[in-house]
Design a protein around this nucleic acid. Structure first.
Length: 836
RNA sequence: GCGCGGGUGGUGGAAUUGGUAGACACGAGGGACUUAAAAUCCCUUGACCUAAACAGUCGUGCGGGUUCAAGUCCCGCCCCGCGCACCA
């Protein structure tokens, strides 16, 4: 009898799989396709840790399950190689990023293969190769020609450590997403000329398409919040004593209660609105605000500051003057950078009015005349009395709008303002355009030439790619430009327009562009003529299954944007790239800390595998520990546990093959039927099929374990022989655990006499007829408490079951001499007797 | 603060969406095999009560409610995690 030895069988099968190409997908197949993948891997030098092992195993299991079900299942592989971590790693290692990638990636190959992931290595891609980034540049080129790319000097988030600008999505709690530790610097604001993609043009489209996605709800919500659509009205105010107009955006024009205006310190009209006697005060305030970082402003919390400009506007409805203030709680980047203060109904306005003694007029109250939503001026404090259910808010002190319900009042007010020409309805978004230029070396060069005569000139399509030159010194210059500014030979070029001398753009493209379209390249990875063939993509789009534990907004939003953009160009049919997305939890150390290089607590999967437990046990444990969405703590006892389970299955198969070899006299098949081999097998198949389909991996594995336990029980009672029943039971057990434990199942499959792989087209269908039992267990409750259980024939009538239930001794005991007032029968489940 | 999730044994987690709470696993305890250990196999394992029970009591964060029946539904609290965070 052979012993279960993962360290022998795993490398053996990995080699055979490589040689026979079981995981090579035929992209032109006639079979139904399935495409599962996890988020792009970012090779950084440290190799993968348990967290990656978890991520990629999730999609690998799905890909394998579908491959076994007969789909042409494609499990692609590639490297998101450009970007800062790779560049920084190369700086540290003292080699070029090109060289460092050439050594890092093979290390990853080793790990991926050791994990038993079913990647199609023939179609491997890497974003730092010219044949890939040619098309990344082409996307920029296309954005330009479609009018969706533009250059603008703006105040940008700037990370002093990275020496580059950051997109809004890359700023986390006031710090760089790469440097978000306590000791890291907070991000600065710096005026930089930047390239932007007009993602805001797609805001509505992306928002509207969100609901229909089969995605983890929290991520859909995060996307919606990030896009942040608000509907309201822009109201123009006349500034007293001048012909100037000041425009405020509001969603709730409760203008009878509007008593002041506040503009952001960065507002373009600050100077002109400030009177001469207020000038020095306002200048000082504005100067102080601008030097403050966003984080400092936040840390100062809600303690409102501000200064009066000396100017007033006229309130259209009341004809009264309202003062214009400058305060930093108003954000320059949202709406018009100016808001109207309605302190009775907005918490921030209330605090501001309180602090500076501005009037508070209540114009909304509950129908009962008492409850109000935000603020009660009579108490002079923020009153958080919530509206009782059923009590509506209505307008008061509001002239012609008095008595209207709040929502109606708002609409009527907006109608009125529009009819008077005082304002226009307006939709705003929190989302900003995507800043795509980075002042770093290790990225795809922006295909632009700066010509003294023609300005910024787009490089013609047929001259792509602009190849990134290899440099000896690629550290940032420190002046805000990338190392490419020093690559004179490369930098000096001729203008495609006039042929005169010109300089290349030294910024490179944000790596998020590389990762926002890679899924389409997977569908046609070797195409030299075009970004991909539309026919190919039509066959393979969308990604059927996608998972990851990060990037709820950034990457997923950008990828959707690119999808919608491609759709508009007619390159693809389905604008949404990811049909299903699972936002999985992560694995943390036992103390709950994240695994990381800096903490030195990372666990290399190879370490676990080489301890002798093997990749199968590791994979199975990772998928068994918790539901996919849960965060799991690493338990060193977990892998030995799943190893034990696989070993139990292994030993059963050994006993079976031994029985076959020694040609033991087989028992009659009906005995095995009565023992339940068939029944339990089909029960397991059903449960595992449904759970794998619904991404409930942990309970799928539990079903397999339960099945193996049952097989041991049957073996104990009836023994094991080479019968068809035992063969089917064991083959099913082996086939169904294959997505989780691909090596041991392949080995056992062959031991059972098969010569083709267990991994293609083997998934069994369960037979409902085999799940029907002769008898069922019925629970009997008396007054809601379980008092007896009885076995009845599956087809027993309601009356006979009730009768049998009432006849139970323990049931009678609790009924006593009273008479049941009610007897409820739930078919196949229980009888509930009510006695009063 | 706002918005989402979620509180179940010593631990990770099950529970067909109102129908036997604790599947499966880890840990713990006991037994078999062994000169011994490891490995393997078998049994026990929510608490209480009990000599034991396939006899009973309690039990899914807390307090109420609906129901023959509540982990699951409703109302009010407490706690934890995540996301957004002065977005007008």
């Amino acid at each position: 009898m052979k012993r279960f030895s993962p360290s022998e069988i795993e490398p053996k099968w990995q080699k055979i799989w490589d040689e026979t190409g079981v995981y090579t997908a035929d992209l032109d197949t006639e079979k139904p396709k399935y495409l599962a993948m996890s988020m792009f891997n970012y090779p950084s030098g440290a190799g993968i840790h348990i967290g990656h092992a978890m991520n990629y195993t999730i999609s690998d299991v799905k890909a394998r399950f579908k491959r076994q079900q007969g789909f042409e299942s494609y499990y692609p592989i590639g490297w998101d190689a450009f970007g800062l971590p790779a560049e920084n790693y190369a700086i540290k290692a003292g080699v070029s990023p090109q060289e460092s990638m050439a050594t890092i990636i093979p290390g990853y190959h080793k790990q991926y293969k050791a994990m038993g992931w079913s990647n199609d290595w023939e179609k491997e891609i890497a974003t730092h190769k010219p044949e890939y980034y040619k098309w990344t540049q082409w996307i920029f080129w296309k954005m330009c020609s479609e009018g969706l790319a533009y250059q603008d000097a703006r105040m940008q988030w700037w990370c002093t450590k990275c020496q580059t600008v950051l997109a809004n999505e890359q700023v986390i709690e006031g710090r760089c997403w790469r440097h978000d530790g306590k000791d890291d610097p907070v991000v600065q604001k710096k005026e930089v000329k930047q390239w932007f993609f007009k993602i805001t043009d797609y805001a509505d489209e992306l928002l509207d398409a969100t609901d229909a996605l089969d995605w983890t709800d929290t991520v859909k919500l995060a996307q919606k919040n990030w896009i942040g659509r608000t509907e309201g009205i822009n109201i123009d105010y006349e500034v007293v004593g001048s012909d100037k107009k000041l425009t405020c955006f509001t969603t709730t024009p409760v203008n009878y209660g509007m008593t002041f205006i506040v503009i952001a310190p960065e507002h373009e009209m600050v100077t002109e609105l400030t009177t001469s006697e207020k000038k020095s005060e306002v200048d000082d305030y504005v100067a102080a605000c601008i030097t403050k970082t966003e984080l400092e402003r936040q840390q100062e919390g809600k303690d409102k500051t501000g200064v009066f400009t000396g100017s007033y506007v006229i309130n259209h409805l009341t004809g009264e003057k309202a003062p214009i203030w400058v305060a930093d709680f108003v954000l320059a980047g949202f709406g018009t950078g100016a808001v109207q203060g309605c302190p009775a109904h907005d918490e921030r306005d209330f605090e501001f009015a309180q602090k500076f003694g501005l009037p508070i007029i209540r114009v909304v109250e509950g129908e009962d005349g008492k409850t109000e939503r935000v603020v009660d001026p009579s108490k002079e404090s923020v009153d958080q009395v919530k509206l009782n259910h059923g009590i509506q808010r209505k307008m008061v002190n509001s002239g012609q709008f008095d008595g209207l319900l709040f929502d109606e009042g708002m609409q009527k007010t907006m109608d009125y303002f529009e009819s008077q020409g005082w304002g226009t309805r307006q939709v705003n978004y929190k989302m900003r355009d995507w800043s795509v230029s980075r002042q770093r070396y290790w990225g795809a060069p922006i295909p632009i030439v700066n010509c003294p005569k023609d300005g910024t000139v787009l490089i013609p399509e047929d001259q792509l790619p602009v190849v990134l030159p290899e440099l000896d010194d690629f550290k940032p210059a420190g002046d805000g430009r990338s190392a490419l500014a020093r690559a004179t030979d490369w930098l000096q070029t001729t203008c495609p327009e006039c042929g005169g001398p010109a300089e290349r753009e030294t910024d490179t493209l944000d790596t998020y562009i590389c990762s926002s379209w890679y899924m389409y390249r997977y569908m046609d990875p070797h195409n030299q003529e075009e970004i991909f063939s539309t026919d190919r993509v039509r066959k393979w789009e969308p990604i059927d299954f996608y998972n990851g534990g990060d990037h709820a907004t950034a990457h997923l939003l950008y990828a959707r944007f690119i999808g919608h953009f491609f759709k508009k160009l007619g390159l693809i049919d389905e604008p949404e790239p990811f049909k299903q997305f699972v936002f999985n939890g992560k694995v943390t150390a036992q103390n709950g800390e994240m695994f990381s290089k800096s903490k030195g607590n990372g666990i290399d999967p190879l370490e676990i595998i080489n301890q002798g437990y093997g990749a199968d046990a590791l994979r199975t444990y990772l998928m068994f520990a918790a539901p996919l969405e849960f965060w799991a703590k690493w338990d060193p006892n977990g892998v030995p546990g799943t190893h034990r389970f696989l070993n139990r299955l292994w030993n059963l198969v050994q006993e079976f093959t031994k029985a076959s070899d020694s040609s033991v006299n087989n028992k009659d098949e009906t005995e095995w039927k009565e023992a339940g081999l068939d029944y339990y097998t089909h029960k397991m198949i059903k449960k595992m099929t449904e759970d794998l389909e619904a991404n409930r991996y942990n309970t799928a594995i539990a079903a397999s374990m339960e099945n193996v336990n049952v097989l041991y029980k049957i073996k104990d009672q009836h023994g094991i022989d080479s019968s068809v029943s035992w063969r089917e039971a064991l083959e099913s057990a082996v086939v169904c655990i294959a997505p989780f434990a691909p090596h041991v199942s392949e080995e056992l499959w062959h031991q059972l006499g098969h010569s083709s792989s267990v991994h293609t087209g083997t998934w069994p269908k369960y037979d409902e007829a085999k799940l029907v039992t002769d008898t069922i267990t019925i629970v009997v409750q008396v007054n809601g408490k379980v008092r007896a259980k009885l076995e009845v024939a599956a087809d027993a009538s309601e009356d006979s079951v009730k009768e049998a239930a009432l006849a139970e001794e323990n049931v009678q005991k609790f009924i006593g001499d009273k008479k049941p007032t009610k007897v409820i029968y739930v078919p196949g489940r229980l009888v509930s007797v009510v006695v009063r």
